[in-house]
């Protein structure tokens, strides 16, 4: 079988779209979940502190690959058939929500307690405090670690290849098997991952710089 690079590269780039889609779903889903976990933790500390800590520890303390298996093989046992994309989206969303909640908790805890006191003494309720005082200040510190995690997440989508989702890594495997040139193909795949991750890091630095200038 003779496949030229001119055939292979477009094939891999099309597959990279699925990697991007899965990353976007997991990031947006995970960020929404993390925000809810954060509101629960600080808004109702009596239940929220323990419950969110347990959730975070469970998801951080087990391999993502196993979370993926549990969703992919577990949901059908409950009578819910899931496609590889759906299974990977669910597992990665849960995983991302736990990590982002933990990262953002650190950023919220970095805000001096006096900010809570002052806003409460002015009559602001919890949601108003979060919306106008705490989160805007946390956001600035949260950008670098959040983008760092996003890069991590994008690379972690490679695991979805194992449940048969045709993203970049799995497409690379298919081409490698067909061409018998695994080194060349996997080098190309790695390059495409790098091309997706590097701009994120650059963007994060630019954003940080801009926030520092506008104080």
């Amino acid at each position: 079988m003779t496949l030229s690079l001119a055939d292979i590269i477009p094939f891999l780039l099309l597959a990279a779209r699925w990697t991007l889609l899965l990353s976007a779903i997991a990031f947006i889903g995970g960020a929404s979940g993390a925000l809810l976990l954060l509101l629960w933790r600080y808004g109702a500390p009596r239940t929220g502190r323990r419950a969110t800590a347990i959730y975070i520890q469970l998801l951080q303390g087990t391999p993502l690959l196993l979370q993926l298996f549990l969703v992919f093989f577990g949901l059908p046992l409950l009578g819910v058939e899931v496609s590889p994309l759906a299974a990977a989206s669910i597992a990665l969303t849960l995983y991302a929500s736990a990590f982002l909640a933990e990262i953002w908790r650190g950023c919220v805890d970095a805000i001096p307690l006096g900010q809570w006191d002052a806003s409460a003494s002015l009559g602001m309720n919890f949601v108003t405090q979060m919306r106008y005082i705490i989160l805007p200040q946390s956001l600035k510190i949260a950008i670098p670690p959040t983008v760092g995690f996003l890069v991590q997440l994008l690379k972690s989508t490679a695991l979805a290849s194992i449940v048969g989702f045709n993203e970049l890594t799995r497409s690379g495997q298919i081409v490698a098997n067909a061409t018998f040139k695994p080194f060349l193909i996997y080098a190309l795949v790695a390059l495409i991952y790098f091309a997706m991750c590097y701009p994120l890091t650059l963007g994060s630095r630019a954003l940080e710089r801009r926030m520092r200038i506008t104080r």
Partner: peptide
């Protein structure tokens, strides 16, 4: 809280 204002030792202005 609407009727009682408070001033703190560390000012606690909103820096942003």
């Amino acid at each position: 809280r609407r009727e009682v204002g408070m001033v703190f030792q560390q000012f606690n202005l909103f820096p942003h």
